[in-house]
Design a protein around this nucleic acid. Structure first.
Lengths: 191, 191
DNA sequence: ACCTGAACACCGTTCAAGT
DNA sequence: ACCTGAACACCGTTCAAGT
């Protein structure tokens, strides 16, 4: 079984489309450039995905599934929910490290008005996955006791996404680190 | 002097383009639709602006100038910098109230890779204006004493922008309010 | 099953031509 | 000074035709 057999055209398209969407969004996701990147013609993309909307929905679905797996791995790797929480911003930092890319879900949240319904659904699932993981970690670590874990989880997600957005707008990773540091100093994120 | 004389074509184009860009971003800003909105033909837009890049730069410049004026007015209206600070998120809320629109600067921060240099500059100026106003208000109100006012101002701006982004992604203004409430409860924003 | 060239209606932009 | 129709190279998408 060769690598080509394992990594089919569909997967190569998804991977390239994900990278493209993290840099240019849904509107900026270009079928012709995407095809060229994969090494086929634009019309051939439609053999794997029925439409740009379908492709983007598949991209977004895989994106949040991968994110969910990465968060589970983070939980398992550290064992300590407080340590996992402290490392949470690293996921967002890694996107910036990769050519100043950003979270697909954040970009598409901005593009809300132009998103096909199927894409919207998958995009919101990413936020749901993050908030659910944060909530569990907040409760398990004892950072939040009793009420308010959901609100706190949402606030952390929104603030970290905002930090990534602001840092991308200046192509300045150091700004992202400073913002996360301030969130910690102020008590939004566990120190 | 008629209203038409006061509100020239250039201004009408700018106003329509701003609304469009707050909903669809730079890439989604469409010259043909914009022209139709204003009541002229696409080619006529170029009599007022040399290019889409030029138009977007003008839009972004006016946007941050208006924001600066609105913040000064907010400071003057309340007189109390602490009260002004508490009301700061209202600006971002108003965009959401207006057909779930978002901050032009946030949208364009996401579109960083596709932004002409001139547009990037004006977009960053919006963040600068907000951070500078927040910093002054934080210091004047005594919320932050000594070091760290700039970092705190940046953190507030990023977090509020993130709250707006997340709320837009769900077309849910109540979520924005909840997020701001949590920022206050946690001490990021003054209570 | 997978790929392709050619065509469609659409974009930003230009330009010669009108008032 | 301001507007326009027609044209350009580009988009997403389709479709008939190839292997």
């Amino acid at each position: 079984m060769t690598i080509a057999a394992v990594t089919g055209s569909g997967d190569r398209i998804l991977a390239a489309a994900t990278r493209m969407a993290q840099a240019h969004g849904y509107t900026g996701l270009n079928i012709r450039d995407l095809a060229q990147d994969v090494g086929i013609k634009a019309a051939s993309i439609y053999h794997h995905f029925a439409s740009k909307a379908d492709l983007a929905a598949a991209v977004a679905r895989r994106y949040y599934e991968d994110a969910a797996a990465a968060l589970e791995e983070l939980s398992a790797a550290s064992g300590d929910p407080l340590v996992s929480l402290r490392r949470y911003p690293e996921t967002f930092r890694r996107s910036l490290e990769c050519d100043n890319r950003m979270c697909l879900s954040s970009f598409m949240a901005a593009e809300y008005d132009d998103l096909p319904e199927a894409v919207k659904k998958e995009v919101q699932a990413f936020a749901d996955v993050n908030v659910a993981w944060l909530r569990r970690s907040l409760e398990a670590s004892g950072v939040v006791t009793g009420e308010g874990s959901r609100e706190r989880a949402c606030a952390i997600y929104a603030a970290v996404a905002g930090a990534q957005l602001m840092a991308r707008g200046r192509a300045d990773i150091a700004l992202f680190d400073t913002l996360i540091g301030t969130y910690r100093a102020v008590g939004l994120l566990p120190g």
